[in-house]
Simulated scan of single mutants.
Amino acid sequence: MNLSVEKINLSRTISSEIVLIIKDNLLNGSLKPGDKLPTEKELMEQLGVSRTPVREAIKILEAIGVIQIKRGKGMFITNNLSRFTLNPLIFSLIMHSNNMKRLIEFRQHFEILLLNMIITNEEKNLNKIEEVYQSQVEKMDPELSPEELAAIDLEFHYAVLEATNNPFAIEIGRTIYEIIKPNMIHFKRKSNIERTLETHKFYLELLRGNDFNPVEVVQRMIKNNEEMIE
């Protein structure tokens, strides 16, 4: 099949443009759940691009659940596309997701906002966050795969999101975590599991109190994440 394609915007990376092309074809109805996508070679010919950006775009689309690769059969639009999968915010963040330093910086400032929203809530409830943290202490094991450990890690952050009771914070937060999830490969070392638990404990200590210096906290959190990625 031929995709509906407008002129590629060279102000962005080619792989990002390919992702947007697939998204636009889904939104305008040219592509539907279950449809088979052109092969890598066909995409290269249709779009006039090289193999590398096509493969990069495919990895992104697979990671966020837009496409499914069936061995020996090809690439297909997944049958369980959700509103979240096509969230424009996800694709907007994808455009900048290669700038890891800025992504870390934004995430940490956003998480400070979340903590402050919970702390200043007169009816704050930390029970779920406490419960998730205790379960992480028990569940995080070096024998688990990085993917399994990343999922356990995110359980804590999702609990923090829910504790804000703010639909805007929850929607944006889930989008941020969906983007960074494929990059959470730092659990290959046991020391980073310990660091993650220490960070979550630090979050809890902040939430239990009512006063903290946001600048110092952000700097500590950014340094922590940069060291884990390195």
Rank of each mutant, 00 (worst) to 15 (best):
F106E: 08
N224T: 14
P53A: 02
L93F: 07
E226L: 13
V218W: 00
K73E: 14
R51Q: 12
P167K: 05
A159D: 08
P38Y: 04
R55N: 13
T196P: 00
T164H: 01
K181P: 06
K223G: 12
L154S: 05
L31E: 04
S191Q: 15
I18F: 02
T39S: 15
R107A: 07
A151N: 14
D153K: 13
M228F: 05
S92F: 07
Q46D: 06
N99I: 10
S11M: 15
N127Y: 12
L161R: 00
M1V: 08
G173S: 09
M44L: 11
V132F: 01
V137H: 04
I193E: 00
N192R: 04
K188L: 12
E42G: 05
L31G: 01
K188A: 07
P142R: 07
E131T: 13
G29R: 12
K36G: 11
G65V: 10
S135V: 11
R174T: 05
F91Q: 06
L47A: 10
N98H: 15
N224M: 14
E56A: 11
G48F: 02
A159L: 05
L93I: 09
I112L: 06
T196C: 10
E40T: 13
K139C: 05
V66Q: 04
E111Y: 13
A57W: 01
L93A: 07
K124S: 13
N192I: 09
E131W: 11
E123P: 00
T164K: 02
N121Y: 09
E205V: 03
N121P: 05
E198G: 08
I193A: 05
E131F: 11
K32R: 15
I60S: 02
T13W: 03
L47Y: 08
K23D: 02
I176A: 03
S145L: 14
G29I: 06
K188W: 03
M228E: 09
R51Y: 04
Q136N: 15
I180D: 02
M1D: 04
F84A: 11
V160G: 03
P182W: 04
H157R: 01
S50M: 06
K201A: 09
R71E: 04
L10Q: 12
Q46V: 05
I60W: 09
Y133S: 03
R83A: 13
T78M: 12
N28Y: 05
K101Y: 07
L43A: 04
E162Y: 08
M1T: 08
G209K: 14
I77L: 08
T164Y: 03
P33H: 10
G65Q: 07
R107L: 07
K70S: 06
Y158W: 08
E17C: 09
D24C: 09
S135P: 07
Q68K: 13
I180T: 10
E230G: 10
D153L: 06
L113G: 06
I129K: 02
E162G: 05
I14E: 02
L115S: 09
S191M: 10
N99Y: 09
A159S: 11
S145W: 13
L204K: 03
K41P: 04
K101R: 06
I18N: 00
E56I: 11
R189I: 05
I193Q: 03
D24T: 10
I69P: 00
I172L: 15
K181V: 04
Y177D: 03
N25V: 04
E194H: 14
S50C: 04
L93P: 04
Q68V: 07
I94P: 09
P146T: 12
L207M: 10
Q219F: 02
N9D: 15
L114F: 02
N224C: 12
I8C: 02
K59S: 14
E123N: 15
